[in-house]
Design a protein around this nucleic acid. Structure first.
Lengths: 153, 153
DNA sequence: TGTTGACGATTAGATACCTAAGTAGTAGCG
DNA sequence: CGCTACTACTTAGGTATCTAATCGTCAACA
């Protein structure tokens, strides 16, 4: 290691928190993507399905909020999912601006197949973690997220 | 919260580690991207610059490895960086398959400008973390990454 | 009741990645 | 040598996001 890279341990190339997290995201994505691909589901679609399995019949905007994606991203994903007949979209009768998204039987059925795959990835990642460590990690990540969201500084 | 979403705390929509991490990556990316945009640098380019500032004159493949990106991604990023005159690429004389990447003065100068911006984002995220917590987080993330990489299970 | 502004969805266009399939150049071996 | 396999880069094409701009609908109020 060069002198340069040692001078700030909070930020060296290998160790910055941001880098570690970005790298982990890629690993998680690649892994889960490969697992669900055989079922014809794209990773970008899976995120939306996961929310719909718990809250069916919500609007596109609510879905976007729940998943944490922008509405344009949500729109694109749903368009693909509709053509695959995983979801159905209909205008809200009461407020025609809104688009209600509901799962088709095909979309519903996937829950029992895909959730275990996602759990497996999560469990593999956490295989050597005690419950305490898992909780610790979750708390630290939450704190990180909260700090990044604040507008001060 | 529905009964359903409560039944497995390790995996509910809001709390899965993979989701938290993916979300954090987006936050980090958006934040840093906005900060560096005024200098005409794209986030995807920044990652490569960061490595080059510490190890100038390496090959494209070495750079890809150091950054943790695929070579095709590296190639595209470098092409853009070359046209912005941030780096120069020349064939290795000894082995003409290799492409040596070196920073231009313009690329070098950016180090003193951009690194503080990246540090600021990191520090903002870690603003309420004690040194112990930071180290803890780093260790937990490293462990996570290691577990995901193993081929067993 | 007509105008204006907010809201929700959509479209357009860009960035950041990936996988898979080329294309050279190098090296090893019979 | 000359074939073959490997290495490094490149190209092609696709996915997952984003921001910014536009379009239809609704609501509020002068």
């Amino acid at each position: 290691m060069t002198q340069k890279s040692r001078k700030n341990s909070k930020f060296s190339t290998e160790q910055s928190i941001a880098y570690l997290i970005r790298d982990l995201t890629r690993q998680f994505s690649r892994t889960l993507q490969k697992d669900i691909a055989p079922y014809g589901i794209l990773l970008g679609q899976y995120h939306f399905l996961r929310v719909l399995w718990e809250q069916d019949g919500i609007t596109q905007r609510e879905l976007a909020m729940a998943v944490g994606m922008k509405e344009s991203t949500t729109f694109t994903a749903l368009a693909g999912m509709e053509s695959l007949e995983l979801v159905q979209r209909q205008r809200d009768v009461g407020d025609r601006r809104k688009m209600i998204v509901t799962l088709t039987p095909k979309g519903k059925k996937l829950e029992s197949v895909l959730i275990p795959l996602a759990k497996a990835v999560n469990n593999k990642a956490l295989q050597n973690f005690s419950d305490t460590e898992t909780e610790q990690l979750r708390n630290l990540l939450g704190k990180l997220s909260h700090s990044l969201h604040t507008d001060d500084q």
